[in-house]
Computed example of a mutant assay.
Amino acid sequence: MSKSQEMKKVLFVGQEPETVDFSDPALPPGFDAAKIHAGIALGMKQMADRGWHADLCLVRPDDSATTVLEQQLSTIFYDCVVIGGGIRIPPKSLLLFERLVNSVHKSAPQASIAFNTSPPDTGDAAARWLNVD
């Protein structure tokens, strides 16, 4: 099997839904942990349906996040790492977002980095960088 035919490996990085501050005005009204979990499940299914190996790495919004991510990145050679909008969009998550991007850059320099807007478009975010439809 050629490199282009090999199964693509994608890591989806998101914040543990139970640690999200739903009072943050930067988040959509009515959002809750159950809705995030449902969106994550949908995004993971869509990537599996594309024939990709997809892993999920949920982090806490604290100093443990980079350690957890770097440990996950040491287990598999990923083609793409998608960092979720829940980490990227809220202004108060900027430092966490920067730390995670730098962890990917350091621990998986071969991986493309992509960003979703919500869990269900994670596969589309990865596809932009994997040169697949």
Results as ranks from 00 to 15, higher is better:
S4F: 01
Q5Y: 02
E6Q: 05
M7C: 06
M7T: 06
K8P: 00
K9W: 00
Q15F: 04
E16Y: 14
E16K: 13
P17N: 12
P17K: 15
P17D: 08
P17C: 13
T19D: 13
F22W: 12
F22Q: 06
P25H: 06
P25I: 10
P25Q: 07
A26Y: 08
L27Q: 09
P28R: 02
P28A: 08
P29T: 07
P29A: 13
P29K: 12
G30A: 12
G30Y: 10
D32H: 14
D32I: 01
A33M: 07
A33P: 02
A34T: 14
H37Q: 11
H37S: 11
A38S: 13
G39W: 09
G39N: 11
G43E: 02
K45A: 03
K45V: 00
Q46M: 04
A48W: 03
D49I: 02
R50F: 04
R50V: 03
G51F: 00
W52Q: 02
H53T: 08
A54I: 07
A54L: 04
D55Y: 10
L56M: 05
L56G: 02
L56F: 00
C57S: 15
L58A: 11
R60L: 13
R60S: 15
R60P: 11
P61I: 14
P61Q: 10
D63T: 11
S64A: 14
S64T: 15
A65Q: 06
T66C: 05
T66Y: 03
V68K: 09
V68N: 04
L69K: 07
L69Q: 06
Q71S: 12
S74G: 15
I76Q: 14
I76E: 13
F77S: 15
Y78K: 14
D79M: 08
D79N: 14
V81L: 14
V82Q: 14
G84P: 07
G85T: 02
G86I: 00
P90E: 12
P91I: 10
P91F: 13
K92Q: 14
S93F: 15
S93Q: 15
L95D: 15
L96G: 11
L100C: 10
V101W: 02
N102C: 11
N102H: 13
S103G: 13
S103P: 01
V104M: 06
H105I: 13
Q110M: 09
A111F: 05
F115Q: 04
T117V: 05
S118M: 08
P120K: 01
P120H: 03
P120R: 01
D121T: 02
D121F: 01
T122P: 05
D124V: 04
A125G: 05
A127N: 00
A127V: 00
R128C: 08
R128E: 10
W129T: 03
W129C: 07
L130W: 01
N131F: 07
N131Q: 08
V132L: 09
D133Q: 07
